[in-house]
């Protein structure tokens, strides 16, 4: 296990280097003069030269890449062309906002997805199985931005049950401690605020979690069906255990192993999907940060946003891979 962990960490190095190279190249691969494209066609020659100077575009590609890596290693992501602020400072509360949203979206996807998959496998070939799997198929095929807009229309605008955008009400903002508002509300011992924060989370989390939920449901069903045919389950049944106990105590533990990989991969999908969901729900996270930067051609923010999301994705997959090796003793690495 230790050797595997070391090997897995070493394998990460070329991937991380490649990622930084791709992200760094975004500005340099722009056809024509990047500074001209960033500033627009009406920019003066002086402004173009100034930007080239400040972004170091006059240096050779590899010299610039070297400086970029050195800055990254010190946690310096550069500064935004639009706000002139330090990106590292701007990005931290946004990472917390995206993490909070992703966490609740995944929680929704896991709870509903695993239980739908179990019920489907338990009642295989029944109408319940058929309904759950059609629901899962539709869920996989649905554009999440459409689902988000539909939710906003029905639950926020028509029924008025839930807030349509933001992380909290515009009046009486919470004093951030960790920037995870759910945790902050608990730390402030303010339960009214906690309910408000949670109610703001419902619609974006459901929209974001729907596709992973559908995929987890399908994976759990097929995994459960396979486990249910195994000898040890037959033995448990022969001992007289009830169906509920067989499924939740014995079958689920082994059936969850492949589901765990799916969960890891889907977390990455959630980070990508956050761009769409956060844009629609005005959620001040990483995705919206990148989206706004694209609209303002703020390339340093686009680069940093993409790099941070990809880095989180790689780290989540690393954790899942290590967990996978830890949980399943049958696998030798």
């Amino acid at each position: 296990m230790f050797a595997y962990t070391i090997r897995r960490l070493l394998m990460l190095i070329p991937v991380l280097l490649g990622m930084t190279l791709i992200v760094f190249s975004i500005v340099h691969l722009i056809p024509g003069n990047p500074a001209q494209v960033i500033l627009g066609e009406t920019a003066t020659q002086e402004a173009i030269q100034q930007l080239e100077q400040s972004m170091g575009l006059n240096e050779s590609f590899f010299t610039q890449y070297g400086f970029y890596l050195a800055d990254l290693l010190q946690g310096d992501l550069g500064s935004s062309l639009r706000t002139k602020s330090d990106i590292s400072h701007e990005i931290l509360p946004r990472i917390a906002a995206t993490f909070e949203l992703t966490f609740f979206a995944m929680l929704f996807a896991i709870i509903i997805g695993i239980n739908a998959g179990i019920i489907s496998a338990w009642k295989q070939n029944s109408w319940l199985d058929f309904a759950a799997m059609i629901f899962a198929l539709v869920g996989v095929s649905m554009p999440i931005f459409w689902l988000a807009l539909m939710e906003q229309w029905v639950f926020a605008q028509e029924l008025g049950w839930l807030p349509s955008s933001g992380r909290q009400p515009s009046t009486g903002q919470i004093e951030p401690i960790t920037h995870f508002y759910v945790i902050d509300a608990i730390l402030h011992w303010d339960f009214d605020r906690l309910i408000q924060v949670l109610s703001h989370l419902v619609l974006p989390a459901v929209a974001l979690g729907t596709i992973p939920m559908a995929i987890i449901a399908r994976m759990t069903r097929s995994s459960m069906l396979e486990v249910m045919k195994s000898d040890y389950i037959r033995t448990v049944r022969a001992k007289g255990s009830g169906q509920f106990l067989v499924i939740y105590k014995h079958a689920l533990r082994n059936a969850t192993i492949p589901v765990l990989t799916v969960i890891g991969l889907q977390t990455g999908v959630l980070l990508g999907g956050a761009i769409l969901t956060e844009t629609i729900f005005a959620w001040p996270g990483l995705g919206r940060y990148v989206y706004e930067a694209i609209n303002h051609r703020d390339y340093p923010v686009i680069q940093s946003g993409i790099l941070v999301i990809a880095f989180l994705f790689v780290m989540i997959n690393l954790i899942v891979d290590l967990l996978y090796a830890f949980i399943d003793p049958r696998i030798k690495y």
Binding site: P14, V15, G18, M19, I22, V23, S25, I26, L29, I30, P31, G268, V269, L271, G272, G273, I275, L276, V290, I294, Y299, I302, I306, I309, A310, F313, V314
Partner: peptide
């Protein structure tokens, strides 16, 4: 394989956004 690994390290929509950010 390493090039594939690097490309797959990005959530797909994010990589698409990066490509469009380059090409317009």
């Amino acid at each position: 394989s390493r090039i594939f690994d690097i490309l797959l390290a990005f959530p797909s929509i994010l990589l698409a956004i990066a490509v469009v950010a380059i090409l317009g």
